[in-house]
Computed example of a mutant assay.
Amino acid sequence: MYVVLLTFTAPMEEVDYALPDHAKWLEKHFQAGEFLAAGRCNPREGGVILTRPMSRAKLEAILCLDPFALQHLATYEIVEFAATRTAPELSALNEAVLA
């Protein structure tokens, strides 16, 4: 699974203008079961996306189509990790149990 850290690289006015399209893009990937959580950082300098396990190539292809990426409004840091300990409500994501 991955944690994706978005950092805004453009003025907030530009980010806000693209936000509705970004929200639609997020919803598409939540509906596809690829994203688990997403939200703004505080302070509002970017955001975070938590994904299900997938290939890094697939994730990079998904991120390339984010309106923030298409409009050069954010950069992305991808952190891959294997969940080996989870809260009970997240046990389905515990890769140590799945192994």
Rank of each mutant, 00 (worst) to 15 (best):
L26W: 10
L26C: 08
E27C: 01
K28G: 11
H29I: 07
F30M: 09
F30D: 11
A32K: 14
G33C: 02
G33W: 04
L36F: 03
L36A: 09
A38T: 13
A38H: 11
A38G: 05
A38C: 04
C41N: 03
R44H: 08
E45K: 13
G46M: 06
G46H: 06
G46Y: 12
G47R: 01
V48F: 12
V48I: 15
I49A: 12
I49S: 12
L50D: 05
T51I: 05
T51H: 04
T51F: 04
R52Y: 00
M54C: 00
S55F: 10
S55L: 06
R56V: 02
R56E: 15
R56C: 04
A57G: 10
A57E: 15
K58G: 01
L59E: 04
L59G: 02
E60C: 02
A61V: 00
A61I: 00
I62N: 05
I62Q: 05
I62R: 05
L63W: 12
C64H: 08
C64A: 13
L65W: 11
D66A: 07
D66T: 05
D66L: 06
P67F: 10
Q71W: 05
H72D: 15
Y76K: 10
E77K: 15
V79G: 02
E80G: 10
E80F: 15
A82W: 09
A83W: 03
T84K: 14
T84Q: 15
R85M: 13
T86L: 04
A87F: 15
L90N: 10
S91R: 14
A92W: 03
A92T: 11
L93R: 02
L93M: 07
L93T: 00
A99I: 05
